[in-house]
């Protein structure tokens, strides 16, 4: 019951803010609504029992990515984008002709049908009983998986990130005359 209420709240937050991100005309407001979407997704993770992933979602996106996006929007002039924003109908004719629209419509229909078929089989196989409220912690398992089973992938990704960091530092460094 409690989990269902939380799930519904998170889902409403995610979808509502997601729509707001798309329709709002101010780029800065879009960023703030994106914050709501990402928090909602963290809530969805939490209701599914993935507590570590949920907190990591907040940590990475709210604490890092959204602030960086806000900085980027502000430094590149977020206010100027307001007047240039166009609605979808005004934009549509410039994006293709009737053949491209027909093709993309067909692809969309096939995509939706495939997803519905996949989800139907999942939904019918779900247990009808309510899931247990006592969710186990995932921290220990994630730790074991990261530094025991998948240690190579873990280390490789850390080397990649270090490379990105060094590269960014070299690009941003002021050149000596």
């Amino acid at each position: 019951m409690f989990l269902q209420v939380l799930f519904l709240l998170s889902a409403t937050l995610t979808i509502g803010c997601g729509i707001a991100v798309a329709v709002t005309r101010n780029l800065m407001h879009s960023c703030v609504f994106l914050l709501g979407t990402l928090i909602g997704i963290a809530g969805l993770y939490a209701t599914l029992g993935a507590d570590f992933v949920a907190v990591t979602q907040i940590m990475v996106y709210v604490g890092g990515i959204v602030i960086l996006m806000l900085f980027a929007v502000m430094l590149t002039g977020g206010k100027d984008f307001v007047s240039r924003a166009q609605n979808l109908l005004g934009l549509a004719p410039s994006m293709g002709n009737k053949w491209t629209f027909a093709l993309s419509g067909l692809v969309g229909v096939v995509f939706i049908l495939t997803n519905v078929k996949l989800l139907m089989s999942v939904a019918s196989s779900l247990p009808t009983k309510e899931i247990n409220n006592e969710l186990p912690s995932t921290v220990n398992e994630i730790g074991h998986l990261l530094v025991k089973d998948h240690v190579l992938a873990f280390e490789l990704s850390s080397v990649l990130l270090l490379g990105a960091l060094v590269g960014a530092a070299i690009i941003a460094r002021p050149r000596k005359q």
């Binding site: 570590f52 907190v55 940590m59 604490g63 959204v66 912690s137």
Partner: peptide, 17 residues
């Protein structure tokens, strides 16, 4: 929570925003 301190660090970054 099992992720207590991690949660605290994460959610307090809202103040920065």
């Amino acid at each position: 929570m099992n992720v207590g301190i991690f949660y605290l660090i994460a959610i307090s970054s809202l103040v920065g925003v």
